[in-house]
Design a protein around this nucleic acid. Structure first.
Lengths: 336, 336
DNA sequence: GTGAAAGCGCTAACAC
DNA sequence: GTGTTAGCGCTTTCAC
């Protein structure tokens, strides 16, 4: 164990409460003593004992906020954060959950947190200017922020936890090659709504020729993350390209795309690769309509993000990396 | 927060130290009071506050032992346990690591732990009678044991953390089917040394016909987990079966098997699937000699095992499941 | 057999 | 400005 507050006080010849004030930058200490105590703390590498601190904080509270807009990823992310809370339950940190419905609500929610006495925030930010602004406000208020699943503005957060899009696109290319035994035509279902999806698609397109030179991209359509539109665009794509062997879905609306495939009588014949592991997707993998899905480990993302925040809150531990990637897990029906 | 020891004492009209004695089954309390206090504790669902307890234990110690025999899996398992220790570092539990070289040493090591004042053990047990005996001794001494990576005797441990062998075998069958585009001949490199490996192979063999009926198993050889023997057996297998398309390695000695393949001029031509993710295997996947490996997430296993033990030591929390499985992760060079 | 008291390291309210 | 005091919940020692 390191040096204690009491020991520092003894060395300085003052009372421990004086040292406490210095540590917390509270008034009520002469400048001379303050200087001297600061030096001692520095020299001896004083670190507060989180146990003692937490024991104390049991009457007061220590709260964190988790902001997860209601998109597909929200439930899994939430589960992850809850799992980690278990490990730190002794420190009885209260965690407030918020589930804004859209970008405006999310920005509003984040702005509101500036006022409340919150010790830190985990947020899955929607890519929007208002949200970015609100994040900047939080960091101005010295409230630490961890972004999860999607990122927004590097300066306004402590760390980002998410998927490596480059890797996720390449992995898809490898799998398409395998599923088609190295040759055939693939259609891409994509969307331009999110930066991450664009990155992923780009990685796929640039790696495919290297990985499977005889697989040809027939066509790519943009579904704008709209369920009905996704259905129509997929149906149209299938009509225009009757010789397609596979579909690569880079974005959401997977069930709608699959419905279109089914309605064209191609379920199980067309190989489909998609992302994530929402319950609806799991079902489609198990039924064989989707060959395989690449999961970004959302639970793990939630867990890591929550951990980084707690580490900061409890131990003043600043994340070593600016961004942390989770694995790209390949799931077939056999190992889903 | 739940009810405190002091509150129970007040209710019982006794001093808190008396309650403490009852809780820890120490002598020095009349039977009448003991009964009464026990009832109160029960009724109010008293749970000790781990924070206060730990704060106290800072001068004394609280130690756990991790016993990882020096097999390939050891380093990754160790890393996992260390990661989890980070999360619980506040409770400053001392963890002693032991690395026995063989079954006899492991048994000896476990027996020795019975005497030392150890609060719990995480162990990767070698399948051996002496080890099983030693584990039974530990559980007789009321020392909780978590087995990790391989299991041994259900009665003598709190929980087992490891891979789902059924799933790992089936996943391999699926991948072989994909790699061979549904038809061809596969050779099996296996070993009868471990129960788990046999299970895995069996799952593969019984699922393959269902999954890829046109893939034929040409031959299976037993390499007895001996590097040199593995090389020879593989070479012989390749000579006897010149038409082989793939190799399925169910066990260890992967680098030696690959060396034999390389020496026959088949590196990269023969598709190879194996297990785990040791550095040597990672290299072979990256170089393209191994098509893909199925990882049992050894780090995660170590982490989970350590967590289950700490949960028990700190919170008296008994694992809900008798065995916990980690994922079977599919790794190609793109996502390794 | 029972209770009183001190102490783990830190925080907060209140005297001086 | 500075020090005193009490208290978070539990363990341990020692006196009665």
């Amino acid at each position: 164990m390191g040096i204690t507050l009491q020991q520092i006080a003894d060395l300085a010849g003052v009372h421990k409460s004086t040292v406490d004030k210095v540590i917390h930058n509270r008034p009520g200490v002469s400048d001379a003593k303050r200087q001297m105590i600061r030096k001692l703390l520095e020299e001896h590498g004083y670190e507060s004992n989180p146990l003692a601190k937490a024991l104390n904080y049991q009457k007061n509270k220590f709260t964190a906020a988790v902001v997860l807009p209601s998109v597909d990823a929200a439930p899994a992310l939430k589960v992850g954060t809850e799992l980690l809370q278990q490990d730190f339950r002794s420190f009885n940190i209260e965690v407030q959950y918020y589930e804004p419905g859209n970008a405006a609500e999310e920005a509003e929610c984040l702005r509101a947190l500036c006022g409340q006495n919150v010790a830190g925030v985990v947020v899955n930010p929607i890519e929007d200017h208002a949200v970015a602004d609100a994040l900047k406000k939080l960091s101005d208020a010295h409230i630490p922020v961890i972004t999860v699943n999607s990122d927004i503005d590097e300066s306004a957060r402590l760390c980002f936890v998410g998927q490596d899009m480059e890797q996720s696109g390449k992995t898809a290319a490898r799998l398409i090659g395998l599923l088609l035994d190295g040759h055939g035509e693939v259609g891409i279902i994509s969307s331009r709504a999110m930066h991450a999806v664009i990155q992923r698609r780009h990685a796929f397109e640039s790696y495919l020729p290297e990985c499977s030179p005889e697989v040809r991209i027939a066509e790519a359509v943009d579904i704008q993350e709209q369920p009905e539109y996704a259905y129509q665009q997929t149906a149209a794509l299938l009509e225009r390209n009757p010789s397609l062997h596979a579909l690569f879905i880079t974005c959401g609306c997977v069930p709608d795309v699959c419905r279109a495939v089914r309605d064209k009588g191609l379920a199980g014949k067309l190989k489909i690769i998609c992302y994530e592991r929402y319950p609806a997707i799991t079902e489609l993998v198990e039924s064989g309509e989707i060959s395989c899905t690449i999961s970004g480990e959302l639970e793990e993302q939630g867990r890591l993000a929550m951990r980084l925040l707690f580490e900061y809150m409890i131990y003043d531990h600043i994340p070593e990396q600016d961004q942390v990637y989770t694995k790209n897990e390949i799931l077939f029906r056999e190992n889903i």
